[in-house]
Simulated scan of single mutants.
Amino acid sequence: MTASRTSSTQITRKPAFPIHRVGIYAFLFMSALFFLIPIYLMVATSLKGMPEIRAGNGLSWPIAPSFAAWIAAWSTACTGSVCEGISAGFWNSVKITIPAVILSCSVGAITGYTLSFWRFPGMNLIFGILVVAIFIPYQVFIFPMVSIFASLGLYGNIVGVILIHVIFGMPITTLMFRNYYASLPPELIKAARVDGAGYFRIFFQIILPLSPPIIIVAVIWQATGVWNDYLFGLVFAGMQNQPMTVQLNNILQSQMGAREYNMEMAATLLTALVPLSIYLLSGKWFVRGIVGGAVKG
């Protein structure tokens, strides 16, 4: 009897390392290399001098790493007719991103809360319009929005760019908050109404304290999208308010003579540093927000 139990245990015992995991780890490894190799090349090139770059050793780490190209990209690179680096574009991006994220997430939270717990005529139609708006290309609205903003005096300034990001960010943030709030127990709202709580009291005292997961997801999503935007900054910001992405394109397109690849790579990395930092610092909260119901519907 003991021998038969032992043989049965040996038969059903799982291997320590299943064979199918080899393919999974190989795929993950190749995917990581696909993204990491370009980043490595950019970092290595940005730390090299032009003579070393011209030698053709693209994959090698710089012999004497230097941040001279980073300093030039920040303070002296030509973004057209002005050679003041992308520092001005950085602060323009900050001025655009922070209020645009706060306003779009706030409007999305209020709208999502309203569509989840308060019934009114045309509610489903409004929600349907917002969902459809997510899938319409932005380019369709460029010309009419330019005309409208110009007539209102909002074209070519920071306020206009912020407003355009809030308008186009509202559908996706509304969908996020609405789907998250739909997963909350409706008994909470019913009990609050029985106790005499009104619209705003329910939102600020009950709904908002339960919203950190979806707030984190929406903030990361919007901050990354607004910071990386090129089209709206190019069309609506004007020459004096161009964000970092527009100035980066100007650096890459306006150089004359020999190209300074190290400075171009440094400018690209500086532009990507903020969204990359946001992800590295709060990426786990983003995942937790999604797992916690941020995109449930």
Results as ranks from 00 to 15, higher is better:
63 I>M: 12
84 E>H: 08
39 I>Y: 11
84 E>S: 14
78 C>Q: 10
54 R>N: 09
70 W>A: 09
55 A>G: 15
54 R>A: 10
40 Y>D: 07
72 A>L: 00
78 C>N: 07
39 I>C: 12
76 T>I: 02
68 A>D: 09
56 G>I: 03
49 G>P: 00
73 A>I: 01
68 A>L: 10
37 I>A: 09
49 G>A: 05
37 I>H: 01
56 G>E: 02
43 V>N: 01
71 I>F: 15
56 G>T: 03
46 S>A: 14
49 G>W: 01
44 A>H: 00
81 S>H: 07
58 G>Q: 11
72 A>F: 00
49 G>I: 07
64 A>E: 13
84 E>V: 03
68 A>P: 07
68 A>W: 06
53 I>F: 06
69 A>C: 11
58 G>N: 13
84 E>M: 03
79 T>F: 07
70 W>I: 13
52 E>V: 02
37 I>D: 09
38 P>T: 05
74 W>N: 09
78 C>W: 12
52 E>D: 05
68 A>G: 13
54 R>G: 06
75 S>G: 12
46 S>V: 12
38 P>A: 09
64 A>D: 11
64 A>L: 14
78 C>V: 05
84 E>C: 02
40 Y>S: 06
82 V>F: 03
50 M>S: 13
39 I>D: 08
48 K>L: 01
40 Y>K: 09
65 P>L: 01
73 A>P: 11
80 G>L: 08
68 A>S: 14
63 I>L: 14
61 W>T: 03
82 V>R: 08
65 P>F: 01
59 L>F: 12
44 A>M: 02
65 P>C: 09
74 W>P: 12
45 T>P: 00
65 P>I: 04
45 T>C: 00
60 S>R: 13
64 A>Y: 15
50 M>G: 08
72 A>I: 00
46 S>H: 07
54 R>E: 15
50 M>E: 14
42 M>T: 00
61 W>S: 03
52 E>L: 04
76 T>A: 04
82 V>L: 13
61 W>I: 04
47 L>A: 02
49 G>L: 01
75 S>Y: 02
40 Y>R: 11
83 C>S: 04
82 V>A: 12
59 L>I: 14
70 W>L: 10
64 A>K: 11
57 N>D: 15
77 A>N: 07
81 S>N: 08
63 I>N: 10
61 W>H: 00
67 F>E: 05
52 E>M: 12
50 M>T: 14
56 G>C: 00
39 I>S: 08
80 G>H: 04
46 S>R: 06
40 Y>W: 14
62 P>Y: 01
53 I>G: 03
70 W>Y: 15
59 L>E: 07
47 L>C: 01
63 I>H: 14
69 A>R: 08
45 T>H: 00
61 W>V: 07
57 N>H: 11
51 P>Y: 05
40 Y>Q: 07
79 T>M: 11
74 W>M: 09
38 P>G: 05
65 P>Q: 04
45 T>R: 03
68 A>R: 10
41 L>N: 09
39 I>R: 08
52 E>N: 13
80 G>D: 13
38 P>F: 05
61 W>Y: 04
66 S>Q: 15
39 I>N: 10
78 C>P: 14
67 F>M: 14
